[in-house]
Design a protein around this nucleic acid. Structure first.
Length: 427
RNA sequence: GGAAACGUGGCUGAGUGGUCUAAAGCGCACGCUUGGAAAGCGUGUGAACCGAAAGGUUCCGCGAGUUCGAAUCUCGCCGUUUCCGCCA
């Protein structure tokens, strides 16, 4: 959420920002509510002051004098009650509106409505060339016996899957390489809960808007769709020291997404599933735009480097205004080449928020002058499973349906290819 | 699942309806003292909102209630601890 003082002083900027994100929000109504809120607050403070003063007198008074004072205080109490009721109503509306005010996108964010309007800022590698007709990952993995989609659906329902055998080994190897790569960038490792309470979702900006995308338990917790939620919650309501910053974390969690708005999309394979797992980069840094930008470039680059280690052709896009979330200032998506679809598909998303999340989560630090500041927050995918397998399997496939293991993974997989022996291919 | 106890500031901890503007100690900061340090002494020591300032309001886990007045009483929730049961 934004600072109400900032909104008051920069109403036009906030309105323009919302327009760029194609989000409708009534800033004028918010400002009117805020005026009302301030007036009521002042009146309440005055009444309270009156009451506090009278309290001391009453404590010392006796007999008729006391009765008289009590009687007059009853009137004060009554009028305070009336003010309080009004205040609660106004505050309720005020808070509701405040939660819907989007963060302002950066100048460098292109105009646009959807992911179709995102702008390519970098390409790495050439789309993989084959001297045979490349198959898709569903067919390859099923034939190799390293994934089972039929039984996955039987057991888990729509979008269900099992990873098996060398598929598990491959996923684990990628994970090992990721730990090594991202830890070398100074990240502390974390395994985070997926079962998370409502207030943390509010704090990260997934709620109240995203209710229908989340699974909910009968006890009222929600299943997180990313480790970002629990990891940001880790420092909730805490005051950090300046010398702790930047805090750079690499967090693992199981992830759950209802994909409520995506019913017809990507119904085959591992691109879009309800239950997955990933490593996520989460960063808290000092409250300066320059620091945020620097960290943003850095964590996005970390993930690019990781994809380069895996040797998968990719391009990076800067997301347009209409493709940004409520709190995001700027976002890069990294998209990997998927031969069967002859296109790039999203593998990673790196964004920064300024103090939008930390203001909601109340994560602060003391700056060099000893003043309290809301930290800045950022996050980026490190590597998502099983989606990462799609591009590895398809880009590294051989004519015989076997998979060459990317060089960087060989030490962790323990072999140079998957399925190039007759025994496995025979099944 | 059953029962009980507890939740106070950076920390320990007092406070069971009214100068609580929260005792005291520890810690921390500054000063005095000292050749330097320690000890000692003195002063200070959080956050949010309103205000140009003076000052005002709020915060004793969270929320609601009783009362002229709540850290203190009542109810609900969250959390911690202990005992019992169950599971591994």
């Amino acid at each position: 959420m934004l600072d109400i003082h900032f909104i008051r002083e920069n109403a036009d900027l906030v309105k323009a920002g919302a327009a760029k994100k194609l989000i409708t929000v009534d800033i004028d109504r918010l400002l009117a509510l805020d005026d009302e809120r301030k007036t009521l607050r002042e009146q309440m403070d005055q009444k309270k002051n009156e009451q506090n003063r009278a309290g001391q007198t009453i404590a010392l008074a006796h007999g008729e004098e006391k009765e008289r004072l009590l009687e007059s205080m009853r009137h004060v109490k009554e009028s305070f009650g009336v003010l309080e009721e009004k205040y609660k109503t106004v505050m309720g509306q005020w808070q509701e509106l405040m939660l819907t005010v989007p963060n302002i996108p950066d100048m460098s964010v292109p105009e646009g409505e959807s992911d179709a309007d995102n702008k390519e800022v970098k390409t790495w590698g050439e789309p993989t060339k084959f001297d045979f007709a490349p198959k898709d990952h569903v067919e390859l993995m099923t034939k190799l016996g390293i994934a089972d989609f039929e039984r996955g659906t039987k057991v888990a329902g729509f979008r269900g899957y099992f990873l098996k055998g060398d598929g598990v080994l491959l996923a684990n190897a990628i994970s090992q390489l990721a730990l090594k790569h991202f830890a070398s960038k100074g990240h502390e490792l974390l395994i985070a809960p997926s079962l998370v309470r409502r207030e943390t979702f509010m704090g990260t900006g997934y709620l109240p808007q995203g209710e229908e995308d989340l699974y909910k338990t009968q006890d009222g917790e929600y299943l997180a769709g990313t480790a970002e939620v629990a990891t940001m919650g880790y420092y909730m309501d805490e005051t950090l020291e300046l010398n702790q910053l930047p805090i750079k974390l690499l967090a693992y969690s199981q992830c759950f997404r209802r994909e409520a708005g995506a019913h017809g999309k990507d119904v085959r394979g591992l691109i879009r599933v309800h239950e997955f797992f990933k490593w996520e980069q989460v960063v808290l840094c000092e409250a300066s735009h320059a620091a945020s930008v620097e960290m943003h470039e850095a964590i996005n680059r970390n993930t690019e480097e990781f994809m380069e280690l895996l040797g998968i052709p990719y391009h990076t896009v800067v997301n347009c205004g209409g493709d940004l979330g409520l709190g995001q200032v700027k976002k890069y998506d990294i998209e990997l080449w998927v031969p069967a679809e002859k296109t790039y598909r999203e593998i990673s998303s790196a964004s920064y928020f300024h103090d939008f999340q930390t203001r909601r989560l109340n994560i602060r630090y003391r700056d060099a002058e000893g003043k309290m500041q809301f930290a800045h927050s950022l996050n980026s995918t490190a590597v998502p499973f099983p989606r990462i397998l799609v591009s590895i399997i398809e880009n590294y496939q051989q004519a015989d349906g076997s998979i060459r293991v990317p060089e960087a993974l060989v030490p962790f997989v323990g072999k140079v290819a998957i399925g190039n022996d007759a025994e496995v291919l025979g099944h």
